[in-house]
Simulated assay, not measured.
Amino acid sequence: MPLPTIRQLQYLQAVSETLNFSLAADQCFVTQSTLSSGIKELENMIGAQVVERTKRKVMLTDIGKEVLRKGNQIIELAQEIEYVAKERDTPLSGPVRLGVIPTIAPFLLPQLLPDLQTEYPQAKFSIQEDLSANLIQKLQTGRLDILLIALPYESAGTKTFVLCDDSFVLAEPISEKNIDTPLSVSDITRDDRPLLLLEDGHCLRDHALSACRLDVASDEFRASSLHTLVALVAQGSGVTLLPEIALNQNSSGNLTKFSGLHLRRFKDPQPIRHIGLCWRQSSSRDSDFTLLATYMKEWMKKHRMQ
């Protein structure tokens, strides 16, 4: 009896991610007809429908979801076969699929990636930016190799490596009342100005509230990006909590470029989140990722991100 091919399983994986045959085909670098034929051959091979498709929507059947779950494991093992031979000769070589959250990516990657590529020229880094929950899910199903996220974050079966601490800073509009003395965390709750935060799903929101021991009402304004928050603060709509990495003067994405913004730091102990790497405990590339983590930690110290 013929067995499903890895390519067919990759087609199914792409369809599950995009829920669109055209986008899935682009992701797999094949024509839509090739991808459709591959999915149909897979269905004929196992004798069951794996994808339900109409003119308006595409979704996996229950059997399709189970095939995908097993298929993800097969794809991951097949990829690790490729890594085994390369790792014997050259550390950190081959594809490295890195997931990064939006509150880190624009402030760190433009500086870090060129140096990483110089240090490890045999590595082929590909980047996916997404929310922590989505990245963890992709990591656990083998669609990503390693994550650059904010910690702590609950994720079963993973190994974490803290790279640096990232302090929170209060951003407020410039006014005659601005002072530069350090804040106490309790000062935030005594402030009658609206506290503007990212929307649910962004771990920065949870880390900021936890670090500052805040319990914010459910009806405060919520934004989808730090740039939106900063623009609103600058025009006087309220105050917000920013991670220090977003204020790094050497970063092309730093938020201090906004005019009309006054920043205040907190007294020690400062409220912080941790920036770190996360990968599967079962990964055969543990030594590679530990090497990468060690390099990145030293790089951040050198660039005063500590």
Rank of each mutant, 00 (worst) to 15 (best):
L197E: 11
P269F: 07
L135V: 10
A211Y: 11
Q128H: 02
L197S: 10
T141Q: 04
T181H: 11
S225A: 15
T158L: 07
D187Y: 03
D206A: 14
A223E: 13
Q140M: 06
D192A: 09
H202G: 04
T141C: 03
K257G: 13
P243D: 14
K257I: 12
E172V: 05
V230H: 05
I146Y: 10
L261M: 14
A211Q: 10
D145V: 08
H207D: 10
L197A: 05
L144H: 00
V185P: 03
C212V: 03
L139A: 03
S252G: 00
P182A: 08
K159W: 06
D180N: 13
S259H: 09
V233Q: 04
Q128N: 13
D215G: 02
G260V: 13
F266R: 12
D206V: 10
S259K: 14
E129T: 15
I174T: 10
T228A: 14
D219E: 14
N250H: 04
N178C: 15
T240P: 00
L147F: 06
L241C: 08
N134I: 04
S252M: 08
P173F: 12
L197T: 13
A246H: 05
S155F: 08
V230I: 12
V169W: 15
R265S: 12
L226K: 09
L144E: 14
D130Y: 13
P152D: 13
N254S: 10
L241Q: 12
C212N: 13
L197D: 03
L163K: 08
R265W: 08
L135F: 04
L144Q: 14
H207C: 02
K177M: 05
L204T: 11
S132H: 15
L196P: 08
I245C: 14
L255I: 02
I174R: 12
S251L: 01
K267F: 00
I188C: 08
T181L: 08
T240H: 03
V233P: 02
L148R: 10
P269V: 09
L209N: 12
D206K: 11
P269W: 09
A246V: 09
Q140W: 01
V216Y: 02
S252P: 10
D166L: 09
A208K: 05
Q235P: 03
D166K: 01
L183P: 09
D166E: 13
K159G: 02
L232D: 07
L241T: 11
L183Q: 05
A217R: 11
A234R: 13
C203S: 11
A231D: 06
Q128F: 04
G253H: 02
L170S: 06
I188P: 06
S224F: 12
E129F: 00
K159L: 12
H262Y: 13
S252I: 03
L198A: 10
L195Y: 01
G157W: 02
I146C: 15
I188A: 11
R190I: 07
I127N: 09
Q128T: 15
H207M: 06
A246T: 15
L214G: 08
G253Q: 04
L163W: 09
L139H: 01
V185D: 01
I245Q: 05
R265A: 11
S184P: 01
F221G: 00
L147R: 01
Q128C: 10
Q140V: 00
A171K: 06
T256E: 15
K177H: 07
F125A: 10
L247Y: 07
F161M: 06
S186V: 06
D215L: 05
V239N: 09
I179K: 09
L229T: 06
E172C: 03
D130V: 03
D180P: 01
S126R: 11
I188D: 08
